[in-house]
Simulated assay, not measured.
Amino acid sequence: MPDIAARMAKRLLPAARALGLDDVGLCRATGIDLVTLEDAYGRVELDRTLDFIDALLAKTDAASLGLMFATTGPPDAYHTPALVMLASETLRDGFTRAFELQRLWGDGDRFALATVDGASAVTFQVPGTRRAAHEPLEVCALAETLLAVRGLTGRMDEVPVALGLPSLGAASEMVSSFFGIAPRLGVDRAFIALSADALDAPIPTAHALFQSIFEKQAREELEALPAEDDLVARVRDFVGRGLAAGSFGLERCAGALAMSTRTLERRLSDLGTTYAAEVEHVRKERASRFLREGRPIDEVAALLGYSERASLHRACVRWFDRTPGQLRDG
């Protein structure tokens, strides 16, 4: 079952109090441990968090709740991925690096840099089967992204190029007012498209040495986290070993794990993921690492199981909004 960082789940409490609800009682009702919420490195099951949000939605709408999370939650400026962003040269670089560390926020590749309708965008998706509680989290994620753009670059009047949400039950006018643009509804994955000027604008707090220190600290924190579900780890291990040989299909993996393909797909679905998503995860992580090591692009394509260089190019643009050459050259 996917987890999120306790420091993120802790944002639920002031929202509950603001809505006149008993935050402690809701924690007990949804199985969220109050002691865990006070642990800087604690983890809370995502489903318990979503159950808590469902209770909040009985008192308000998704748009209001999402913006409340984004603008009134506990400050997170000293969380290591945020420090990495503060020390990065540009937003594009900062987002790329922070998203590689996002398990410190929560399990799953929820955030990504991508291209949407020809524009660079930050996308966001909550793991698991869609439910009403996803809506405020999506609004919050996009709002925090815009606040980061404005705060890190000083471009306080920055307005997104485009905005998309899978759904929004009500109060879309409030979202339009906050972002300065009306959201497009019915998209597959929430996104906020940003101008190239904003993404490539220099961050005044950039510092290469500090960035290196913060990234090292973040990697150590990642290693200290509880291991992700053993099944996911075993699937990723199988994919990693089979990529270069082109031997990483679903049927082969299921056979290696001594289960049917249907069972493997069902168990991964229960964990909020799919086999294709795990292949993508392994390829994405290795592409970033291999290219930053300066390996030849054709070699990286082969190591990731791509039959042609163009496939790696398309994947890198989708994952990082950068070409393999741009990633390799820094």
Rank of each mutant, 00 (worst) to 15 (best):
G246K: 09
L34K: 06
I181G: 03
R236I: 08
L83P: 00
L101D: 08
S269E: 15
S307Q: 11
I53V: 15
M156L: 14
K216Q: 15
P136Q: 06
L147K: 02
Q326F: 01
D51F: 10
C27W: 09
D230P: 07
F111Y: 14
R295K: 13
V282R: 02
V161F: 05
F95V: 02
F191N: 04
P202G: 03
L152G: 10
R318G: 12
M85E: 05
L312I: 08
D188Y: 03
L168R: 04
E100F: 12
E278L: 14
S167W: 13
L209V: 10
R267W: 11
V279L: 03
L101F: 06
L21R: 14
D51A: 15
K10L: 15
D200T: 09
G169E: 14
G330E: 04
A170K: 15
R236T: 11
P81S: 05
E280V: 02
A315M: 12
H79K: 13
I213V: 11
P160V: 03
L194N: 00
D188M: 08
L152E: 10
A162D: 14
L152V: 06
R17V: 15
D270F: 00
S247T: 13
S212I: 12
R266M: 07
L243R: 04
D33S: 03
A133E: 01
L137M: 12
G249T: 14
M259S: 08
A29I: 00
I203Y: 08
L271K: 03
L13K: 05
D329Y: 04
V187F: 00
D270H: 08
G66D: 02
S307D: 15
G240R: 05
G169V: 10
V235S: 07
M174L: 15
C253F: 05
H79C: 10
V317W: 12
V126E: 05
D3G: 04
S247V: 10
A143G: 01
L264S: 01
G180C: 01
F191Q: 00
R17M: 13
L21V: 06
L86M: 12
R11P: 00
P2I: 09
R219A: 10
Q125V: 13
D237S: 11
L163T: 04
G20D: 11
A201W: 11
P136V: 08
W319F: 13
G128M: 10
D197R: 09
L209M: 12
G151K: 03
R286C: 02
R97C: 06
A193F: 00
I53G: 08
A193H: 04
G255K: 10
